[in-house]
Amino acid sequence: MNIKDVENLAELARIELSEEEKEALLKDFGGILAYVKTIEEVKLNETAPDTSYYD
């Protein structure tokens, strides 16, 4: 991620940020994304849609 990415997100979310705020967010995002990224390693063993629990 870089500053441009933060700026794009801020634009989408309609939130004005100062330069310092953008830098701080970039730093925070680094840590947070590193944490939630572990979701990528979860093996789901998906095959077909399974609705057995809802029948």
Binding site: D5, V6, L9, A10, L12, A13, R14, I15, E16, L17, E21, A24, L25, D28, F29, I32, L33
Partner: peptide
């Protein structure tokens, strides 16, 4: 929104947007 929301709120809104 930039001024009304605090740091954590802005963090999470942007994370969600991402």
């Amino acid at each position: 929104r930039g001024r009304g929301f605090g740091k954590e709120a802005r963090r999470r809104i942007l994370l969600g947007t991402y």
